[in-house]
Simulated assay, not measured.
Amino acid sequence: MKAPIVEIFSSFQGEGLWIGKRQIFIRFAGCNLNCNYCDTKNSQNVNNGILKSVEEVVKKIKELETPDLHSISFTGGEPLLYFDFINEIISQTDFKIMIETNGTLPDSLSKINNLNCVSLDLKLPEHFNKDWNEEIFNNEILSIKSLIANKKNFYCKIVVSPSTSLATIKELGEKIHKIFPNDKFSIVLQPESPIKQWKNKSNAFFEFSESLGEYFNVFIIPQTHKILNIE
């Protein structure tokens, strides 16, 4: 069994609720979406990956292991395109497992074994030049339902830009709350990088947080790995 891998490296998680944790990142090539803010464009095309076996990946994990290693993060691209491959790696390692996913492949997500954390994107129509559709949102909801039903640790992430309107965030929050009225899970609002573009616009963070805070646990977390100038 092989899968297209762009890179395998050790660094600190720069996003979300596991921020600052030392991880080994396994970045797959290939994605089923084409978000306009994507900061790993080279991972969208499956042809940019090098086919590697499970054994090769496990060997690299062992080579990169450090005393402070917290977990392994499968990212992309979209890692759930290769859920069978991921399960094989999980079966051969003893580390905590994180999946960073766009949330649009709920069936594949439900098949991943021994998950410790899922970072699940909630996409906005503005994240696409033209190909956003309601099916994207519906699949994200199915993924959340599956995670809740299986009692998996997860949080949702929304990338916001200076042009994102309060009305957009408020509408999304209310829409999700109607589906999950009894589940107050966490939502991370991630300001689009670079942070300097938010100069004189940081008041939006307070407005976004207040609009979602009625229903969810809200965090404002930028991409700290870019602030630290690390991969």
Rank of each mutant, 00 (worst) to 15 (best):
I169R: 13
Y155V: 09
K178G: 05
N138S: 14
F185C: 12
P181E: 11
G103P: 03
K175W: 00
Y155H: 15
S163L: 05
N138P: 00
L166I: 15
C156M: 07
K151E: 15
N87I: 01
D94T: 04
P125I: 10
D84R: 09
E171V: 07
I141K: 08
N150P: 01
L172S: 11
E100C: 13
T93Q: 05
F95I: 00
G103I: 13
H177W: 15
E135V: 08
K170E: 15
L120V: 06
K145W: 01
F180V: 01
E140I: 00
D121T: 11
P162I: 12
K152Q: 07
S163W: 07
K178F: 07
I99Q: 10
L147M: 03
A167E: 14
T168P: 07
P106V: 02
S143T: 06
I99Y: 04
K157L: 10
K151Q: 15
T101C: 03
I176Q: 06
S119H: 09
D94L: 09
D84G: 11
V118T: 12
T101A: 08
P125E: 11
I148F: 01
N102A: 05
I141R: 04
L105Q: 12
I97F: 02
C117K: 00
S119N: 14
D84E: 12
T164K: 15
K157A: 09
E174M: 14
N139G: 05
N138G: 00
L105T: 09
D84N: 15
F128W: 07
F154E: 08
P162A: 08
D121I: 13
K170S: 14
I112A: 05
L166H: 10
G173K: 13
D94S: 11
N87Q: 10
S143I: 06
L122P: 02
N139F: 10
V159L: 14
I169A: 14
S91F: 13
P181A: 11
I97R: 05
E126D: 05
C156T: 10
N87E: 06
Y155S: 05
N114K: 15
L122K: 07
